[in-house]
């Protein structure tokens, strides 16, 4: 697919911020992979590496009062939304200092402060929640957009279609962010969808929808600004299909039998980080020194997160059954 020409660079500090958040996700997750092999992080771990432009470009467009719903591949969204790297890492360690007290792990990042409503590991399970959050905002007269992230795989689920219809029918302030990375685990979009133009599927519900180059953080940011502006102005739900690609296996257990090394290599030529860095260099906004400074800032943040997680503590087993129901009076 051909996309419109990439938008022009923003000013230096904005461009640097975009680069920094993509770099933070990348380095944070590289560290996660390392910690996984050391068995510090266990369970399922789904890396976002390759897709950073989507979170980095779209989330800063939101306001603090907005809500975010995400999937199990949500470290990037959480970081950009402002959930501290420290509490995310502690969550992945399963420590009680984690943003969900270690109860959820990698797939279930929750944070009330930033209105980050998870980390849902049921494919498409978050879409109805986003519709409800938007309904609440509308009924309360609050200026709140709900951004809902999900993959191409979710588009085949019934919950996706129910949520599209409800959002459109009730004209709700939701931004649907489809991260089309071409695969649902090992199932290519072409063997899962009768109509592979996913934006078109949303259009059938009367929802304004278009595809965006998800490897170009500037294109992501521009499209999100346009969509969010319209949602906020009362334009009802919008749908963005971010065409992206994951460079890593689906999870740490995936032998990647379903795609070729050549295909992955081809996509890596459009790695969103060097893509933006090159443009910034060209424009004189970035040099080797600047890049090193960024790398070292990010490395410090990741180190700090690891230290925080390492120093964290295990929730006492006596607390196992806390938070099955709300603690109204007696808090143990």
């Amino acid at each position: 697919m051909t996309f419109p020409p990439s938008p022009s660079l923003p000013d230096e500090s904005d461009a640097r911020a975009l680069l920094r958040s993509m770099l933070l996700i990348r380095r944070f997750e590289e560290k996660c992979a390392e910690l996984y092999t050391q068995e510090k992080i266990r369970g399922f771990l789904h890396l976002y590496i390759g897709e950073e432009a989507v979170a980095a470009g779209s989330l800063p467009v939101l306001q603090p009062q907005d809500s975010v719903v995400a999937t199990y591949r949500e470290h990037g969204q959480a970081l950009v939304r402002g959930v501290p790297a420290t509490t995310i890492m502690a969550e992945m360690y399963g420590k009680q200092e984690g943003c969900a007290r270690g109860r959820g792990g990698s797939m279930h990042i929750f944070d009330a402060e930033t209105r980050f409503f998870g980390g849902n590991a049921i494919v498409a399970g978050g879409l109805p929640l986003a519709v409800g959050l938007a309904l609440a905002a509308r009924m309360q007269g609050e200026d709140r957009v709900t951004a809902c992230y999900f993959g191409d795989g979710a588009v085949a689920e019934g919950e996706f279609h129910e949520a599209m219809n409800l959002a459109a029918l009730w004209d709700l302030p939701v931004l649907f962010c489809c991260e089309n990375n071409l695969y649902a685990m090992g199932t290519a979009v072409t063997i899962a969808h009768a109509e592979t133009d996913l934006a078109l599927r949303a259009t059938s519900y009367g929802i304004p929808a278009w595809a965006v180059d998800g490897m170009d953080v500037l294109a992501v940011a521009a499209a999100t600004r346009r969509a969010v502006q319209s949602v906020r102005a009362g334009g009802g739900p919008h749908f963005l299909e971010f065409r992206t690609y994951r460079f890593r296996p689906h999870s740490m257990f995936d032998p990647e039998l379903y795609r070729s090394k050549e295909e992955v290599a081809e996509w890596k030529k459009r790695d969103p980080i060097p893509l933006l860095a090159a443009r910034m260099r060209e424009a004189g906004m970035l040099d080797d020194e600047g890049m090193e400074a960024l790398e070292s800032e990010v490395a410090d943040e990741v180190d700090e997160a690891v230290t925080f997680a390492e120093e964290g503590s295990w929730e006492p087993v006596e607390e196992l059954t806390r938070f099955v129901y709300s603690e109204t009076e007696e808090v143990s």
Binding site: F117, G125, P128, G132, L135, A136, Q140, E159, E162, L166
Partner: peptide, 19 residues
Amino acid sequence: PLSESGFVGAGIGAALGGM
């Protein structure tokens, strides 16, 4: 509409959102 998963989920979301 006839969307049990959709509207039950929307109710849960609305509860999360303060309704």
